[in-house]
Structure formats: structure tokens, C-alpha cells
Design a protein around this nucleic acid. Structure first.
Lengths: 191, 191
DNA sequence: ACCTTTACATACAAACTGTCTGTATGTTAA
DNA sequence: TTAACATACAGACAGTTTGTATGTAAAGGT
């Protein structure tokens, strides 16, 4: 079978990213060795180091895919025509849906901050989901809050969502957390 | 100088823990090699592996010290005689004080979850700080909320505090975050 | 058809972790 | 006080792991 270089590259990168994702989720980044990754992907280490600068770059590629998937899922939810409050709650629900993909919380919320540093994670994930949340909050609160306070609230609620996503993945009842979020949100309107 | 075995052990363990803490804070757990740690501590790797099962156990010892310091700081704040609301806000402020120790947010909030797993971290840190928060919230909310909802709120607020602590360490204005926390808390009373 | 570039495969060097063995010092008891 | 033992190390060693360097075959341009 004669494949073009572009096809080969695409196929190899994808195989590596998916194999790495499986192993990073299963054993964590530090415990996953590159020989294991390439064996799972059906290639050699030469291919890995040809396409990625190092192991961390491969992890970053996995993370970027994950962040894009989350962003796409959230973008896909229709919020137009709903009240600001409903938009926030729908957004939260969509976020939980997005984070329900197996292993996603481990990758994005546990491994990534330690491996890539908080800044890179902020760039990948928060820039997306947190941006949406900030706009939603601004809409909901009206012109009442200044920029700094809005940023602080956004960050803190985003962290709360992350923690809720982890709890939900580990078996907690989703309704309970969505209710608690609604309580937090509703309280904000008179602050 | 003739030192007793107990003294030697105590001194060596402390030197290792303090050296490891410095390096873990500076370069992160994964990037810190045991030869560097023992050099910084002025001992050999033989001593390290005599006192600790492995590198992870040394990290755990660092973390436990850190968690104890946070708990001690929070316990040291007098909350008796204050209103439930004031108790919560004072507790939050005390938490920020405690987390202001250099490197503490990195160790407890970024490295620990990835290195030890979320469960171990919950056991070390949350069991302490989160327990206090849960009681404070229960006091504040009265008999209004059920146990599951209280647990969810506690976890989410705890995560919000953590994120605020990180923001504060990276230069954000503390007053802004304390104000945002007050807003979140105050909103909860009518939910 | 030729030459260059890309996509790998394999061999290699350096670093790191945990273990094992040996030694010196402290501890206990006859 | 000395014989027997336990503890606290030091240093050597083996197995992995990471990133690099070198070699090769297939694709792509001219």
C-alpha cells in the first residue's frame, strides 16, 4: 500500500496520541514509559521522537486534543434565547457532559497542572471554558461588578466546576452538584 | 561528638525533608533527582533510602509537614464568639495566610494531586481544612441543607479557596478574592 | 533518472531509581 | 566492660528510561 507522506504522518501522530492517552489515563504521565507508548501504538521510539520533541510534547498534544474536545462540546450547546441564568446553568451542565469523557478529569485537572505547569493549562483549558463562563457571569450580573471582581469570581467558580467534575466522575450524584451550583449562582445576583 | 541514634535519625530526616522541600518547590517533583536532594541535605543516598521507602515516601513526608502547618495555622485562629458568617470569612482569611508560605500552593495544590493521587491529598489536606469549612458552612446555613448538598458545597467552596490561594500567590489582590468569597457566602444564606 | 527531503528504525550514551552489601557507631545485657 | 546485636549510614551495582545520533528506505520534486 502506497501512502503519501502526509497520510503517514497523520496516521502515526494519531496512533501515538491515542496510545499515549490510554496509558496516561491508566497509569499517569510519570509511570508511563515511552517504550510502552510506542508498543501500544505499533510504532518505534524513532517515530515518536521524529514527530514530537520529547515525551512532554506528546503529552501536550494529548492535552490540546482534550481541550479542543471540551471547547467543541460547550460551543455546541445553544444558549441563544435563554435567560442569563439559564445560560449559566446550561453551560455548567454542558461542561459536566464534556468532562464525563473517561479519563478527561485526570488528564486535564490532575496531571496537566503538574506536568505542564499551571500557566500552560490555563492557556489550553481555561482560555476556553473559563472565557465562556466569564461572559455568562458578566451577562448574569449586569454592570454591577468590576473587572477584577468578575475575574476572581470566574476563576473561583471555574475551580468549583472542576472539583464538581471530579466528584461526579468518582461516583457522586450529578444533580446534587448542579443544585449546589445553582444555589451559588442565584446567591450572586444580590451581592 | 557522640549523638544518640534518635538524635541522628531526627537530624537526618529533617535535613532530607527540608532539602527535598526546597528542590520540589523550585523544580517540581519529577525534575528533582535524589542525588540533588542528598547533596543539598549533606548526606548520601544510602541515608535517604534508609529513612524513606522511596522518593515518593519522602515527598509524602514533606506534604504531611505542610498539611500539618496549614491545619495548625487554621486551628490557631479564635473563632469563638463570632457570628457564623464572620467565622467563615475569618477562616477563609486564615487559610490564605496559611497558604501564603512560599511554595506551599505548588506543593499542596499542583504537585501533590499528580504525585500521590487525589485520594491521598484529600486525606492529608482536605480532611483538615475542608472539615473546618464544612462545620462552618453547616453553622452558617442552619438546618436548611441536607448532608449531600452540604458536602457538595463544601468541596466546591474548598476548591474555590484553593484557586484563590494560587491566584494570590501569583500576585493577585487578596482583597478582591476575599470580597468575592464574601459574595458567594452571603448569597448562600437565601437559597 | 537524480537528488533531496521526509519518515522512520536501531544503536548508544547519560542519568536516575531502587537494591544490596559492607562498615562503623550506638545500644543492651550478662 | 565486653560480647552480641541493632541501627545508621556509605558506596557499588543492576535495571530502566530518556533523548540523541546515525543509518536506511520510501516519497517528492526537477
Amino acid at each position: 500500500m502506497a501512502r503519501s507522506n502526509k497520510e503517514r504522518t497523520e496516521a502515526t501522530r494519531l496512533a501515538l496520541i491515542e496510545a499515549a492517552r490510554r496509558l496516561f489515563v491508566e497509569k499517569g504521565y510519570a509511570e508511563t514509559a515511552t517504550p510502552d507508548i510506542v508498543a501500544e501504538a505499533g510504532v518505534t521510539r524513532g517515530a515518536l521522537y521524529h514527530h514530537f520533541e520529547d515525551k512532554k510534547a506528546l503529552f501536550r498534544a494529548v492535552l490540546e486534543r482534550e481541550g479542543e474536545a471540551v471547547a467543541a462540546h460547550i460551543e455546541g450547546v445553544a444558549l441563544e434565547g435563554t435567560s442569563p441564568r439559564a445560560a449559566l446553568l446550561l453551560g455548567a451542565s454542558a461542561y459536566f457532559d464534556a468532562m464525563a469523557a473517561p479519563g478527561r478529569t485526570r488528564l486535564l485537572l490532575l496531571e496537566a497542572p503538574a506536568v505542564l505547569g499551571l500557566e500552560s493549562v490555563v492557556a489550553i483549558d481555561r482560555e476556553n471554558a473559563e472565557g465562556t463562563l466569564r461572559v455568562g457571569l458578566a451577562d448574569f450580573l449586569g454592570a454591577g461588578a468590576n473587572a477584577a471582581a468578575l475575574k476572581a469570581l470566574t476563576e473561583m467558580l471555574s475551580a468549583a466546576f472542576d472539583r464538581a467534575a471530579i466528584a461526579i466522575e468518582t461516583g457522586a450524584d450529578r444533580k446534587t452538584y448542579e443544585g449546589a451550583i445553582a444555589d451559588l449562582i442565584d446567591g450572586l445576583v444580590r451581592a
